[in-house]
Every structure is written in C-alpha cells, then in structure tokens.
Design a protein around this nucleic acid. Structure first.
Lengths: 150, 150
DNA sequence: CCGTCCAATGCAATATTGTTGCATTTGGAG
DNA sequence: CTCCAAATGCAACAATATTGCATTGGACGG
C-alpha cells in the first residue's frame, strides 16, 4: 500500500493530472491499471493485474497490453517496478526523480518509499570515485514491517 | 568481471575454501559454475551458464541443476544474483555480510561491488525509523563505467 | 568391505514472466 | 470528415524459473 499522503484517490487523481500536464494520453486502460495499483495493498504482478482488470472490464486484457501500460506508467513516474519481485506499485511522488529507497514487507507486502538525500550523496560519491555514470538505480530492501514483526 | 583482487584463480580458490570450511560440499558442477562465473567478464544468465557448461562438460546440464547450483553458491555467499538483470556474478568478498552496492555497466557488463559503511548506517537508520527489520537488500546501480563512457 | 542414508543431480514437464509482429481501433489535428 | 500517429487486440513465442520424482554417488557406521 502506498504510504498515506492524502487518500489513494487523491494520489490517483494527481498522478493522472501529472501525466496529462506532460501531454501524455491517459486512456481508460491506463487509468484502470493505475487505479488498481493505488487500490492494492501490495505490489501486483503483471499477470495478476491482467486477471483483475479482465474481470473488472468484462473482457480479456492481454499480457502485452498490460506490459505496455506498465511501461508507460513507469516512464511517467507514476508507477514503479520492483525488480526483486517482478511486481509493480503506484508511486506517490511523481514530481521528484525517484531517488528513493523502497522497503517491502515480505509478509503483508506493505511498500514504503523513503527519500534520503544523504544516501543519494553517498551513492553519487561512490559513482564519482569509480568514474561511473548512473542511469538507473534499484534500492529495494525486503523484510518485516512494524505491524508484521509482532 | 569481478574487480581485481589477486587473480580470478585466487578468488575462485578462496571461495571454494570458504565453502569447504563451512562443511559444504563443493561438487564438480558447483565448482564448474563458480569457475565460469569467475572467468566471465560480465553477469551471466542461468541459461547462458547452462549452455556454456553443457559444452564444457560434454553433456547436457539441465536448468534445474543450474538453478540449484546458483542457489547454493548464493547461500554460501560466493555468488550474487543481480535482480535487475536476472543474472549472476561471482562474489569476491564471501567473508563479510554482502552489505555492498553493486555497479553494473550497461555496455560492457563490468560489475563492481563497493562497500560503504556510512551508507549501511543510513539504511539501518531509515529501517529503524520505520520499525522495519531488513532481511535482504538489493542495491543495484546501472549505467556506464569509466571505460565505456569514452 | 558392505550396506545405509542423505545430499546432489538428472530429467521431463510445467509454471511464470516478458516480448514480437502485425492487424485494428481510437482520438486528435488540420 | 479525413488523415495520421498512438494505443490496443491478438496470436504466437521467447526467456526465466520451478516442481516432482527417479537415480547417483559419497560419507559414515558397522
């Protein structure tokens, strides 16, 4: 579940608005996928989304459609792929550059994106020292969230 | 290519020794997979390993054997799976706890594992603040290495 | 040396995840 | 309205990963 920051509806609405501002087309399928991600309480796989949306929309949605839609949403910065799970979540800070750390609970799936500027600086310094130019970062920490640690 | 630190042979030998010290069985297949990873100049996929080893060993190695072997090597800390690529590399510091950052060049595949204690502390602090207990970390940065930036 | 046992491997089938190519539809610009 | 490009539908397929069960092989006690 994307961490609280207004309601999921607010998040969805502002994500859609952000896409439109950039001139991107928010089609019914794209909106439905994003809505499903916002409503989910955990990361969803592509085929899970396909099944759920096929039911919701009363017709078969194909895997390629789902993947293309997810690509679009990730490019727009309103969804994020979790590499270590082959799954996706809605992203609640489309404005910044996704320089965040993702905590994912193995138990309930709760996913929290945390920004940490100091950490960014350390990574940038390491990259600099190596002469490495960073295109894409994957920072995923899995374990147990506060609720599930019982 | 695992970064220089003695020769690849030294790395391979010490990785094998480390496994044996723990009482783990280092079979011909396990050794061959690890040797191939050490010799590779880039991360290798499971099926790539299967094909290469099938040729080397003069018989068909099956996918399950490869996956089981890779699981073993990762558990032993002598190999690492790169989640963002579905690929594996040999690990050159089986001694510590794999609290490292991995830089992977999109161009040549060069993979450098960097330790960064400050970064570890920051992540631990974020986790603490969330009440989150970390099981597994994935820190993978892809981009262009110094040589490929030309 | 022999038998027993268990970990490791072989192997076939299958599941899951992701992609390609091409036809068709849709929505917006002119 | 017409045209164009983007989006979607769809079938086939490719790549990655797992399951279940049979077989092998080495370690160890006798």
């Amino acid at each position: 579940m994307p961490e609280a920051q207004g309601s999921a509806d607010d998040g969805l609405a502002s994500a859609i608005a952000a896409c439109r501002l950039r001139g991107a087309r928010v089609t019914p399928l794209r909106e439905a996928v994003l809505r499903t991600l916002w409503a989910a309480e955990r990361p969803l796989g592509a085929y899970e989304l396909r099944d759920q949306l096929s039911e919701e929309m009363g017709r078969q949605i194909s895997a390629p459609s789902i993947y293309r839609t997810l690509d679009f949403l990730c490019e727009q910065g309103v969804a994020v792929r979790i590499e270590s799970r082959n799954a996706y979540i809605a992203c609640n800070h489309p404005e910044d550059d996704h320089a965040c750390v993702l905590f994912v609970c193995n138990d309930c799936g709760l996913s929290s994106e945390i920004e940490n500027k100091k950490l960014e600086r350390l990574l940038a310094a390491d990259a600099e020292a190596l002469g490495f130019s960073i295109d894409h970062r994957v920072l995923e920490l899995s374990g147990s969230c506060a609720d599930c640690r019982g």
